[in-house]
Computed example of a mutant assay.
Amino acid sequence: MSPEHPTTAVSPPEGTPGQPPEESAPVPSRRTFIATTAAGGAVVAGGLVAGPSVFGAEPADAAGAPPDSRVSLTVNGERHTVTVDNRTSLLDLLREHLDLTGSKKGCNAGACGACTVLVDGRRVNSCLTLAIRLEGAEVTTIEGLAEGDRLHPLQQAFIDHDAFQCGYCTAGQIMSGVGCIDEGRTGSPEEIREFMSGNVCRCGCYVNIVRAVEQTARGK
């Protein structure tokens, strides 16, 4: 026979004599736990948003208007001095302050070329150019190309070759074409396409645009 093992006695839970032992607290359900946690998080977040900043009082100018600066530049032969928000682009200066709306705001990210103008004779995307960086600069827009009623040769060539449809990109295309001609980048249709590739025509008039630039470059 195998030896018997002694049985360990389990003491009953302590409690007040005559009363049943105290029951354990019920374990909350998963749904209750999630709801309680979400409510607590909302209270904390609300306190952070509505309460004072943990980093102290905000500077007085943080909630005020952004700083402005004065800039003087020549646009289409006319001198202008304006005060603008430091974040103002050349495109917005032209359209909103000088009422020169020929330059179009297409992508506003420098990807379409509709806003192309000449700054000191070089092509730039005016939507990416800060106005306050152009102190003393010479800016030419589509409005400044014609001489009175006489169109610029490239403007006339665009008409001759029907190099536009909707016309939204046309001002930028012409300004870029003028820059391309002045830079001597018109040796072949392939070269023109390469150096005007930053100007997008959603109507697809590229063949006629290249022909217009070629015509103008030959007559120069």
Score class of each variant (00 low, 15 high):
Ala62Pro: 04
Ala50Phe: 05
Ser89Val: 00
Ala63Asp: 12
Leu48Thr: 04
Thr37Cys: 13
Gly198His: 02
Val117Ala: 00
Gly102Gln: 04
Glu78Val: 14
Glu22Met: 12
Ala111Cys: 07
Gly121His: 09
Ala63Thr: 12
Arg150Asp: 13
Ala157Arg: 04
Thr88Asp: 05
Ile209Asn: 02
Ala217His: 05
His161Asp: 11
Met175Tyr: 07
Cys166Asp: 10
Ser103Cys: 04
Gly204His: 09
Ser11Gln: 13
Gly144Cys: 12
Val207Gly: 01
Ala35Val: 12
Leu94Tyr: 05
Ala25Thr: 09
Thr32Gly: 09
Leu130Glu: 03
Gln19Ile: 06
Ala25Asp: 13
Thr116Phe: 01
Ser29Tyr: 05
Pro3Gln: 12
Met175Ala: 11
Gly18Tyr: 01
Glu23Trp: 06
Ile159Ala: 14
Arg202Asp: 07
Gly167Met: 10
Ala217Phe: 01
Val213Cys: 09
Ile192Thr: 03
Ala63Pro: 05
Gln156Ala: 15
Gln155Gly: 09
Pro6Met: 09
Thr140Arg: 15
Val200Phe: 13
Arg202Ala: 09
Asp182Leu: 08
Gln215Ile: 03
Arg133Ser: 14
Cys127Ser: 03
Glu143Arg: 12
Ala50Cys: 03
Asp182Phe: 03
Ile132His: 05
Pro3Ala: 13
Gly106Val: 00
Gly198Val: 02
Ala65Tyr: 05
Val178Ser: 05
